[in-house]
């Protein structure tokens, strides 16, 4: 193995040509698709971010760092960045806490457990467009169940989608509702794979349930929690559909707009592809940085059972 590593690449390829061919056959199609539909657009977007282009002119016009300067000076950019951060933190934190509790419940021997698990997972398989429309009905100020609840309680409840300060939270509610089912499925799978002997030993030692949860379950589940934190955060920062359907970023733009919705608006509604590309590049860099930070911090609290 050591010898093979020292051999020049060409000799290694001649000797192991068949293996290389098999490798390329398996990886090639996937790599080609990634290259065309992911890596090339990323590269192209990076180049476009230094240009002024309305998507229609024959060629983009070089603009240097003008797009980046314009974005950093624009209060709307900072507002949508803040909205997206609030959205992502709220959705990930609330949905994962609820999903974990739900998974603990669904992991117990309950009557109708399979049905309950299906119900819990249903919001995730519902398309976001449909989920958003359902929530529009739920929050409807005159005909929604929430307004009936307010009326039954004798209070004049707020109008969520007409309020510039509440609309973002209405969008967050949809995100949480959809994420809970997905996260609970992973937590449930993780819980079912936990070694029973740890719990038997803890029971023999008389460890109380809450202590068992804190000292055994959560540490053993930390890889699942970490996975859901990383993927959940990335997914949440890309929120678009629910904003487009429920608020279009309003009622006073960008009160409930998110980063990706703003990107879409700049690029495809306002004809500013260069500016939208700069927004996309900043998004890419920040997402990679946050993910790297999450991985760096993971060594402190994620236990892989070694």
């Amino acid at each position: 193995m050591l010898d093979a590593g020292r051999r020049p690449l060409a000799r290694a390829f001649r000797r192991n040509g068949r293996e290389w061919l098999t490798f390329l056959l398996f990886v090639g199609p996937n790599l080609a698709l990634f290259a065309v539909f992911t890596y090339w657009p990323i590269l192209r977007s990076f180049v476009l971010s230094f240009t002024k282009w309305n998507l229609l002119a024959p060629a983009p016009e070089w603009a240097g760092l003008a797009n980046y300067r314009r974005l950093f000076a624009d209060p709307t950019f900072w507002r949508v960045a803040l909205n997206t951060f609030i959205y992502a933190v709220a959705v990930v934190a609330v949905a994962q806490a609820c999903a974990f509790l739900l998974a603990l419940l669904l992991n117990r021997p309950l009557r109708g457990r399979a049905l309950l698990r299906t119900i819990a997972f249903l919001p995730h398989v519902t398309t976001t467009a449909v989920a958003a429309l359902v929530w529009v009905i739920v929050l409807h100020p005159h005909y929604g169940p929430l307004s009936s609840l307010y009326a039954a309680l004798g209070v004049n409840g707020p109008n969520w989608l007409e309020s510039a300060s509440l609309a973002l939270f209405a969008v967050i509610a949809v995100g949480i509702w959809k994420e809970i089912g997905f996260a609970s499925l992973f937590f449930l799978a993780g819980l079912q794979g936990l070694p029973a002997d740890c719990y038997e030993a803890a029971a023999l030692d008389g460890v109380r349930p809450l202590s068992r949860l804190w000292h055994i379950t959560i540490p053993l589940m930390s890889p699942v929690i970490f996975f859901l934190l990383v993927t959940g955060f990335i997914a949440a920062t890309k929120a678009f559909d629910s904003v487009a359907i429920m608020t279009e970023g309003g009622p006073v733009y960008p009160a409930s707009s998110t980063y990706v919705y703003h990107l879409y608006k700049l690029g495809f509604r306002d004809f500013q592809a260069g500016l939208a590309s700069a927004l996309a590049c900043i998004f890419f860099i920040v997402t990679v940085a946050i993910t790297a930070l999450q991985f760096r911090m993971a060594s402190r609290w994620v236990h892989y059972g070694e």
């Binding site: 529009v136 929050l139 409807h140 100020p141 005159h142 109008n159 989608l161 007409e162 609309a167 359907i245 429920m246 608020t247 279009e248 309003g250 009622p251």
Partner: peptide, 18 residues
């Protein structure tokens, strides 16, 4: 009033007599 678009906007408010 300035009703939100998703809940039907100004037209829904008028059509429902609100």
């Amino acid at each position: 009033t300035l009703p939100d678009k998703a809940s039907g906007g100004h037209r829904a408010a008028f059509l429902s007599g609100r």
